[in-house]
């Protein structure tokens, strides 16, 4: 059993996420159409596209917050589907940051970050605290550790959410529009933290409209429209004109101002 999984991993050692022919429907609406995509270790992939194009749905399929109905998704060499125990295992290797932060409002900042390590890897509270403080320092918010989420600004909350995801020491980080719910003056503090994370070599999949961030940080840009991946190319190609009509139209709309 363990032998099998290690060999599995070796084969795909540098591919952490792969989608093969994935389809997903919400009732009769097809949200994802024949998605094929792979993300290598250390790669930063930015996913963009108009709203309703399926980019959030796609990223949420990685840790199965949404279930796909056809095709296969592998994360860190394991297929994600059904089996709860295996799914929990996958989710511990995949950190996720949400648009609306989703911190646990009844817990202090520190408790928010220590919860998962304590519950999942059965480490002592002191050890969990140490890990948590390390990551809170990394997102520069350690001095607020004893406050509660509603006492922090949106930007601070999102940074805590990043620390909470990192505390599980994930191999991949997923960001689902991490700056869309933020006031403009707070967007940069979050993007800076994400940029640092990228420069430390974290594998990242980011759904965002922040094209400046994509230019600076991404290795690859995926453009989606109507549930399909329309473009999947290097950042250079995407921003220097190697893009199709729809991507062109989208970019001209969001870069107008």
């Amino acid at each position: 059993m363990s032998n099998l999984s290690t060999t599995d991993r070796k084969i795909d050692s540098d591919i952490l996420i792969s989608f093969q022919g994935v389809n997903k429907w919400f009732d009769h609406f097809q949200a994802l159409k024949d998605i094929n995509l792979s993300v290598k270790q250390g790669e930063r992939v930015v996913v963009c596209g108009p709203s309703g194009s399926g980019k959030s749905t796609m990223i949420r399929c990685v840790n199965q917050l949404e279930n796909h109905q056809q095709g296969t998704i592998h994360v860190c060499g394991r297929e994600v589907y059904g089996n709860m125990k295996q799914l929990e295992q996958v989710r511990r290797e995949v950190g996720m940051v949400f648009q609306s932060f989703n911190l646990f409002p009844h817990m202090s900042i520190l408790q928010n970050v220590t919860l998962a390590p304590m519950r999942n890897s059965k480490i002592s509270p002191a050890e969990a605290r140490e890990i948590a403080m390390h990551y809170l320092e990394r997102v520069q918010i350690a001095d607020q550790a004893d406050k509660f989420p509603n006492q922090l600004s949106g930007g601070q909350q999102q940074r805590v959410a990043i620390a909470r995801a990192l505390a599980m020491k994930p191999r991949v980080m997923l960001f689902d529009e991490p700056t869309s719910a933020l006031d403009p003056e707070m967007i940069n503090e979050v993007l800076d933290v994400m940029g640092e994370l990228a420069s430390d070599g974290m594998t990242m999949m980011v759904v965002t409209h922040e094209m400046g961030f994509a230019r600076k940080v991404a290795d690859r840009v995926v453009f989606m429209d109507e549930g399909r991946i329309e473009e999947n190319c290097s950042k250079e190609d995407f921003f220097t004109g190697g893009r199709g009509e729809r991507a062109e139209a989208f970019l001209s709309k969001i870069l107008q101002h």
Partner: peptide
């Protein structure tokens, strides 16, 4: 909120 379930599941809680 749905987000609370999702965040809790996303960090791998049973």
């Amino acid at each position: 909120q749905k987000g609370q379930w999702e965040a809790a599941r996303a960090v791998g809680l049973s």
